[in-house]
Write a protein that binds this DNA or RNA. Sequence first.
DNA 1: ACTTATTCCTACCTTGATGGTAGGATTTAC
DNA 2: GTAAATCCTACCATCAAGGTAGGAATAAGT
Lengths: 149, 149
Amino acid sequence: MMVSTKGRYALTVMVDLARSSGDGFVSLADIAERENLSMKYLESIISILNKGGMLQSLRGKNGGYRLARDPAEYSVNEILLLTEGTLAPVNCIMQDGVQCEKAATCSTLPLWAGLDKVIESYLSRITLEDIITGNRRKMLGEYCSSCEV
Amino acid sequence: MMVSTKGRYALTVMVDLARSSGDGFVSLADIAERENLSMKYLESIISILNKGGMLQSLRGKNGGYRLARDPAEYSVNEILLLTEGTLAPVNCIMQDGVQCEKAATCSTLPLWAGLDKVIESYLSRITLEDIITGNRRKMLGEYCSSCEV
DNA sequence: ACTTATTCCTACCTTGATGGTAGGATTTAC
DNA sequence: GTAAATCCTACCATCAAGGTAGGAATAAGT
C-alpha cells in the first residue's frame, strides 16, 4: 500500500475544510464527527498539515482550522507528500534523488522511475477543487464510463 | 510502499530468466548469485511464480527454471499482481471490485480509482522484453531526458 | 476572574506485514 | 548411488501502521 490512512485521512480533512472554505475556523471535533473518524488520530494528522503551512489555526474557544489558500491551489500530490513523506512505489526510489548503490547497472530502475513519475504526474494534476466539484473526467479520465456524453 | 521486495525480486528473477530465454533451465543458485540476493528468500518467491504458471521447472540435477512464454508476452503488471496480490495504492480500492461501505458518498474515491487505473495502465504496457532491451522511451516516456534525439 | 472549548504536545501501545532463515524431503542426471 | 537441484513446512525478529491517553497552553464569552 503506497498511501496509508494517514495520507487518506489528511486528504479527507483537507477536502472537508475546502468545503467550508471562507466560513472561518472549523473545529477538529466537527470534522471528526462529519467524517466519522477518530478525533485523537486526526489530531496527529492535522498537526502535520498545520506545521507544513497548509492550514491556519486558532486556539481556544471557537478556535479551529481553515485552509491557508484557495482549494484550487492545493494539489493532492503536495498534501500526500507532506503527510506520507514519500509517494515512491518502491524503496529503491528516494524522493530527494538519492539512489540505490546498484542503480548504475540496475535494469529495472527505469521501470520504477517511470512508475514514480506517472504517479506524481497524476496526483499533481488533481486539486482539492477538482475533488469537491466532483470533476470525474479529470480524475478518471479515459476510464470513466459515466463521463461519456 | 506499494511494491515490496517480494514483487521487486520477482521481477528481477523474471528479467534474469528472460535474458537466458532459450538457453534451457537456469538454477536458482545461479540467479541468486548473479543478482546478489538470498537464495532461500528467492526460493519462496520463485515458488509463487512457478505455481502461477509463469515458469517451467525441472527438479533434480541440472534442473532449474525457464520462462513459459516469450519475454514480450509478460507484462510487468501480471508479474507484480501475482506476487503482491494487489497493486492498489490504497486500502479502499480492492482488486476484485469490492468496495468500501462509504463508497457511494465518498468524494475522494474517484481520485483513488483514477490513480489505480493510471498505475495499472502503465504497468500493463511494459513487458519483460522492454526491460531487457532497455526501452527507456517506453518506460520513462516524456520524462526521459536521455531519450531526446 | 472563571469556565469552557479548543489546539498543542509527549508518550505509550497492539497488531500484522515484511523480510527473511532453517531443515529436510523429493526428484533427476550422470 | 551420489550429487545437485527443486519442493515443502515451519519458524522468527523487526518495524511501521493505526491508533489511544492524558494533560498543558490558549482564547472567547460571561
